[in-house]
Structure formats: structure tokens, C-alpha cells
């Protein structure tokens, strides 16, 4: 099992980690020759939210070498906080002017005291050009192939609609206000560019509505189907406000986000990383519906 890579776009890696860090204490990273998958599939996490993501190796790494008996894939469980700390240190130069200038970040799988670690070797220079070397060893559990085989994405019915969300940062400001009022958030949308986010309690009802959003058509077939549908029909899914806020943590990385509603089943959110034209990856959030929320 060999694995090493130079981290080129450390800030992207850092932000992706930031986006999912709050969800689970440990998550799974699966490296394949083409992609990096970050997976949060813990049943017990907040509201059962799952994240399955796929990020192109090229969008973060360079000089990428991977080799293993399991189809050249390496899957590991890693502490999100520790990974975040290592990446924060590596990306320090972009956040503070006086910090060290990072020249190279090497990530590799290594062994330390008989335990597998993901090692980050950071070389840089101080403000006056003296060399600094920082090494982070993040403990990982390399997963066995049969464990990996058990990992499966949740199955969902065909979504009732797709809608392009407004910028997540704006959405977040609103949901943050709703959070203290209710634990359950209603997410409503139709195929005609309308989105409503609302809460309703005994004493208050708050609803925010967006209009003229895009309803992306995934393919021709779907477009035909939709011609027969009532475009104005509103589909509703109730989700945990807290889970939704955790998804909104990904505002740090998102460029565009598409939401899919499977009425009374779940909310699926595709967070695209990088330019719309050259998508570097996508984080998929599954937020289960709260059925008895009405």
C-alpha cells in the first residue's frame, strides 16, 4: 500500500473538510486513482445526515501516486478535527500575512509506532526566508476491503424536483435566525423556480420565499416528463433545522448548489466545488425527512 501526493490546492481541501467537519467526529476518506471521496455515513450523527462526495484528484493534488491490493484504492477513517488542524496549519499562509510562506505540502501514508498515520510534510519559509519544516501525523484507521464494500450510498426515490439554491451564505443568514424558533424546518419548492423556507410553531410562523430560481434539467428525458407535470405544484420536505444548518457550513466551498426534494423522504443537496464550467467535485448531502413534523 503506497500513497503519496503533493497538496496543491490546500485551501480547497481545507474548506471541504470544514464543510463536513461539524457533522461527524470521524469520517471516511476513500482515495481512488481518480477521485477522493469524503464520506460521512454515521447513523448516529445529527439527524442522520449523510455526506457522500467525489472530488477530482486534479483539483487538489499533484504528483499523486496510489497503489494498493484493493484495486488501488485506499480507504481510511480519520478524525475530522485532527485533519482540519493539519490543514489549517498548512494553509496558514493564506490567512495571515506574517505567517510562513508554504512552499510544498506532501501528504503520504506512513507508519508511526505501528499505527498508520497520514503525514503532512510542510516546508516553508519564514518572512525573512529561513526554512521551516512542519510535520503533522494524523492517526488514521485504514479500512479493510470488506469493510469498504459495506459502504453504500443511501437509496432514494426519483426526486420530485431539482432547484438551484440561492447563495448558501444568504440562505444561512436566514436559517440561523429560524434556528432558535424551531427545530423543524420546512423546505418547499416547485418546478417553477419558487423556493420557500419556513418554520411554524404555536406562536410564530416565518417563511422566506425566493422566486425565479433555476430548475436545472438533468437530461432530455426528464425534460419531457416534466412537460406533463404541474410546474407550480409545491413539494415539501421537513428536515431538522440543525441538520440543515450543518449542511450550510459548506457555504465556504460552494459555488453552486442544487437541491432535490423527495417529498416526505429526504432532501438531497449537491454542493458543487469549483467553477460551474470545470466542476472539481461535488459534495452530496442527504438529509432525511422528518415525517411526523407536520
Amino acid at each position: 500500500m503506497r500513497f503519496r501526493a503533493a497538496v496543491e490546492a490546500v485551501s480547497v481541501f481545507y474548506k471541504i473538510t470544514q464543510a463536513v467537519e461539524k457533522l461527524q467526529k470521524r469520517f471516511i476518506i476513500k482515495f481512488t486513482p481518480e477521485n477522493m471521496h469524503i464520506i460521512c455515513n454515521h447513523e448516529a450523527n445529527e439527524g442522520g445526515t449523510q455526506v457522500w462526495s467525489q472530488i477530482k484528484i486534479d483539483s487538489i493534488f499533484a504528483d499523486y501516486r496510489i497503489q494498493s491490493n484493493a484495486d488501488n484504492q485506499i480507504t481510511m477513517a480519520i478524525s475530522s478535527e485532527a485533519l482540519l488542524a493539519a490543514l489549517r496549519s498548512a494553509s496558514a499562509s493564506s490567512t495571515s500575512a506574517t505567517a510562513y510562506q508554504v512552499e510544498e505540502i506532501l501528504m503520504k501514508l506512513a507508519k508511526k509506532n505501528d499505527r498508520a498515520v497520514l503525514r503532512f510534510d510542510i516546508t516553508g519559509t519564514t518572512s525573512v526566508g529561513r526554512r521551516v519544516k512542519v510535520t503533522h501525523d494524523v492517526l488514521v484507521d485504514v479500512m479493510k476491503p470488506h469493510e469498504v464494500a459495506k459502504l453504500a450510498e443511501p437509496l432514494c426515490p426519483d426526486p420530485d424536483l431539482h432547484i438551484l439554491l440561492p447563495p448558501l451564505q444568504k440562505l444561512r443568514t436566514i436559517v440561523e435566525r429560524l434556528r432558535p424558533m424551531s427545530d423543524i424546518l420546512a423546505f418547499r419548492a416547485n418546478n417553477n423556480g419558487k423556493l420557500q423556507v419556513s418554520i411554524s410553531t404555536e406562536t410564530a410562523r416565518v417563511q422566506t420565499e425566493w422566486k425565479n430560481l433555476l430548475n436545472p434539467k438533468l437530461n432530455e428525458e426528464q425534460a419531457e416528463e416534466e412537460g406533463e407535470k404541474d410546474l407550480d405544484k409545491i413539494f415539501t420536505v421537513h428536515v431538522s433545522t440543525r441538520s440543515f444548518l450543518k449542511f450550510l457550513n459548506s457555504h465556504v466551498i460552494s459555488t453552486s448548489t442544487i437541491a432535490c426534494v423527495c417529498q416526505n423522504h429526504c432532501l438531497i443537496l449537491y454542493v458543487y466545488i469549483g467553477d460551474a464550467t470545470d466542476v472539481g467535485g461535488v459534495l452530496t448531502f442527504y438529509i432525511p425527512a422528518i415525517i411526523d413534523g407536520d
Binding site: A82, L83, T126, R131, V132, V134, T135, H136, V138
Partner: peptide, 14 residues
């Protein structure tokens, strides 16, 4: 419990 260990080396000229 600590999941990460870190080492830093810097020139004494600092």
C-alpha cells in the same frame, strides 16, 4: 485521544 501529533523545525536564527 490525541489524533494528531505535530513537529516543527526552524532555524535557530529565528
Amino acid at each position: 485521544k490525541s489524533q494528531i501529533s505535530t513537529e516543527l523545525n526552524i532555524s535557530a536564527e529565528e
